[in-house]
Design a protein around this nucleic acid. Sequence first.
DNA 1: TCCTCTTACACTTTTGAACCGC
DNA 2: AGCGGTTCAAAAGTGTAAGAGG
Length: 557
Amino acid sequence: MVMYLPEERPVLDLPYQMNHLANNYGYYPQDCKEPICRPQHSTNGRMSSAEAELTSLPVHVSLQDRELWDKFSSIGTEMLITKSGRRMFPSCKVTVTGLNPKVKYVVIMDMVPFDNRKYKWNKDRWEVNGSTDPHLPNRFFIHPDSPAPGEKWMQYPISFHKLKLTNNMLNSNGLVVLHSMHKYQPRLHIVQSPDPCNPHNPGCYLRFTFPEAAFIAVTAYQNQEITKLKIDNNPFAKGFRDNGLNRKRFRDKETQDTQDSDGPVKQDLPPNEHVGRSQKDEDVDVTVSSSVDSSSTQHFSEVASSVTPNPFISAFINLSTAGAPSPQQTHTILSLSNRHLNSPREARPSSLHNLCASLPMAQSSCVQSSTADTNLSRMPSQISSPLNPQQHHHHHHHSSSPASQTPGRSIIQLQPYFLTPPHPSRQCPDVELPLPLPPKLSRMQLPESALRNLEMTPVSDYVNPRPLTDILNRIHFRPLASGPSGKGLQNPPNPEQYLRGSERELFPQIYPAVQEYIDQQFTLNSMLNSQTEHRSQMDYVSARPLTEYYSEQQTGK
DNA sequence: TCCTCTTACACTTTTGAACCGC
DNA sequence: AGCGGTTCAAAAGTGTAAGAGG
């Protein structure tokens, strides 16, 4: 296992030392970046050039909707979990820069325990209610666009709004399973696809945790202030705004209440205060227990040890627990801007939103920087150069002081280890990450259910997790799975023509391009077979769109 | 009694098929 | 035939309130 002590990581440290972000912006302790490599192919504690590929890049990840997250966080974010799965609000949306534009990456998100405590809501605050229940097997959400080249990931904000949380451990539809009344924090994985020229190199990956997006999983909202924030900001909850006066049920109730009213009390209230919310609730002074203070980031080793060894996730965990520094040892930079995207509508913008002309000058220029072919051959530091904070300063701000800049989104950047950053609230700089909003995505483009099969591994496999190489290899070829003819797999192929997934693992991984077509067809088919084997109606239905998705990917639609 | 969880409900947004005109 | 825009019904995503269950 490689220990990435600072002196052993010259490749990692150099770009960050050179980047003037480190000099101009305050550190932010709550976001974490963990570079991790497969250990067995390192030589004498040093990374091979291929392994160094991802971790040597000045990868920046920023959580969007930072203002909204902060609003929730200041109260104590709660996320509803249901049996059928509930989306997060706010959802995790990140911008990534600094990737190699031509290298393919898989982007994954999961939820890790924030601490080892269980909580309960006591009247007006969260309190510790014992220690944590045994952690559930990690379910991770593989972004449906995975794998994709770095330029694609950097082109638009990466939205995880389709990630669903559940408390149903039996659910096999790819939902993230959490314990109610436990606190979690989102974690992002950027996994470099395996190197086709080196079958033994499975690729590196980076992990980013977002303590500022930590939340307590609940089956029913506890804090009325959180409910109010959700209603005010989530378009789907518009029907509950104005305290739900426009809702039939409440109208009826209001009518009844008016008839039954004994007068004075409700007349003293504002017109809408007595609907769905008591006066007592309005007067609640919301406080959050110090035990859930988001600054109390858990040691990474604690997180890792609490994660049940799902084959995929365990591959990450096993690599990181022995040598990777704890989150407190990695330091990040927080940067804020005033670009605020806080609704699904904005996340799925009209075509007008895609016009660079609508963006500020610096945004447009940076959009070009992340997508233009002329930049594709740049060195990593050059690739990220358009994000030079000083340039953004020049475009957006008159003040030279980071603290004086406009709040908004955070920027995370790997910093030299063992530095003690100042508190972000006093040193929140502003770097505008200029990403256009993504085009409208079709629901047909969701191969999530197929990807779920990557984690629906029998319990016995937990003992001997499949190599990361094998899992990544499956993902690696997905977009080309329809084969060279593009739409050749509009109809699902005959399952008997291909090996089953478990049988395939007996064969060696073959990476050369010649083999790709066979491998791709198999990969797709094994996914589809696996779907039908699970007898999930939802998964079965998705089989057809999946093939269409791959065809469209192949034909460049 | 308290706490946690499930369910049905009304409401809103999103999605995609079916048109229509060019 | 292909493309783009519009319409509309169905699906999906919301929090609420009632009630079940431990």
